[in-house]
Write a protein that binds this DNA or RNA. Structure first.
Lengths: 166, 166
DNA sequence: ATTGAAAATCACAGCCG
DNA sequence: CGGCTGTGATTTTCAAT
């Protein structure tokens, strides 16, 4: 069971995901409420932890990190998983680390400049970590991030608890 | 070769990634410039496409979608990849689709409520897509998104072109 | 949630290095 | 060209309803 949002909250989240710096005024007009009411809803969403933060969507390709890599790791179980993860979180270029089901243990998401950069990441930063047994890297040659994803996911969430009917 | 940022641009991106709604005034104070100068830099970063948009970081778990799934797809090559991808982009719960190297063709990232929800996603939405041959789903049982990732990546990017030296 | 007024902030202009 | 300061216009905040 999770949080309850009404249609206005959902609309606000959608609008803010499109433009996180939109003024309260424009948001208020868009949802048909007054400015203070919108301000109040946004701070409540933030306090409830539904809004984690307002972030900036950076085009990493333009900053010289065009390539997305998924690095699958198998660990020997001589090290605690927490130890391996804490060493991984020190590694630059890594943006996410997951413990996963299936034939591997960890799935790491990283962003690299090119193959030289990837070589350094693998050889100098990943391989030396104790407890890592096998490394398998998959490169994305094209990525489609769905900008409407938030909108789509949210339309689904109105006054919902997120569970499914069977 | 890519874009050039100076130290102030980098600092602004870091600050905005922490709080995308920060006032120009507070940003100006933090970087030691005046308000208009900061406004100018932000609009320049936006025009250059480095800032794609200001977004909101939503805690999907609190909205009933706690589980991250990676779905690996193998396609038979009877359908154009564009066709398969365009059908995938209609599917709710999917937030990213990549064409990848390795033993699979597509890697899809999705967020689901529970196993019932996942079952429906797979059986009703993914399997029926023509041209999909094999589906292998990996569930994340724990995910660590690195909040400092942006900061770390950016510290690296000052006045850089993003390529590596060998 | 609304209104209305006070306080803070922003955008725009013209001006300097 | 990139930045600063001024001013008027907007926006945000706060109180009372």
């Amino acid at each position: 069971m999770s949080e309850t949002l009404d249609a206005v909250d959902v609309r606000l989240l959608q609008l803010l995901d499109l433009d996180g710096r939109a003024s309260l005024r424009s948001l208020a007009e868009a949802v048909g409420l007054s400015g203070p009411a919108v301000a109040d809803r946004i701070s409540r969403l933030t306090e409830r932890g539904i809004i984690r933060r307002f972030a900036v969507d950076i085009d990493w390709a333009r900053l010289g990190l065009p390539t997305l890599a998924h690095i699958a790791l198998l660990t020997d179980k001589t090290q605690h998983i927490e130890t391996v993860m804490s060493r991984l979180r020190e590694v630059e270029r890594i943006e996410e680390i997951s413990i996963v089901t299936g034939s591997i243990d960890l799935l790491v998401r990283a962003r690299v400049a090119d193959l030289v950069d990837l070589r350094r990441l693998l050889v100098e930063r990943i391989w030396p970590i104790e407890g890592i047994q096998r490394v398998e890297t998959t490169l994305a040659v094209e990525t489609l991030a769905l900008p409407d994803f938030t909108a789509a996911l949210l339309t689904d969430r109105t006054t919902s608890d997120g569970s499914s009917r069977s």
